[in-house]
Amino acid sequence: MTVQSARHRAADPVTESMVLVEHVSRTYGSGDAAVHAVRDVSLSIAPGELVVLVGRSGSGKTTLLNVVGGLDKPDEGRVVVDGREVSSLDERGLVALRRDVVSFVFQTFGLVPVLSAAENVGVPLRLRKVPPRARDERVALLLDLVGLTDHADQRPGELSGGQQQRVAIARALANSPRLLVADEPTGQLDSATGVAIMGLLRAVVEHERTTALVATHDPVMMALADRVVRLQDGVLVEE
């Protein structure tokens, strides 16, 4: 299991980068009430790289993640993920991007409460219409990877926060995404669980050869990252 850092690679940034953010700005509202969430941010993430995005609350981390993940559109600049210009994709392209390329880990886990852990993990595979047998095998593998084989049939309400986040990570990895976007994945967990989750995230990223962009305050995660990027008032201040 090898993580190849693209930190020093250059050449064609579009073809060489998994994520390329160029002069992206995003403003909410207008006039006096306008909030400049992200201003002229440029960033490149190489394939297989785990980049941690840090900054205080309101610094624009989530906005940047949303823009990168295709959940929001920048007002200016462009975002390229896996060679696709996200900012110009239509709804169908965005759906395909989220289904095949990017996956998300939410701060509040984002599990479907009426589905079991295994069923939650299987959702992305169903979206790709993976045959049941292959789906079951993949789900079992991922649950094993996150250490929840014995909890496969339990529903989110019957799992602890850490277990739920593990399920969320397993689900995020289910369709072997090229890019994993995680927003405060340990935000609702105690520190010990948070450390475990961070470790897991690092391990599965390496295992699945996935690029990851993680917003966090957690210093443990920062330590595990290939690179740490800091945002302040919507501006990239440190890399």
Partner: peptide
């Protein structure tokens, strides 16, 4: 709606 939004984030179309 949150559940549905998350499913959209996972790649389900509207």
């Amino acid at each position: 709606r949150l559940e549905l939004a998350r499913l959209q984030a996972l790649g389900a179309s509207q």
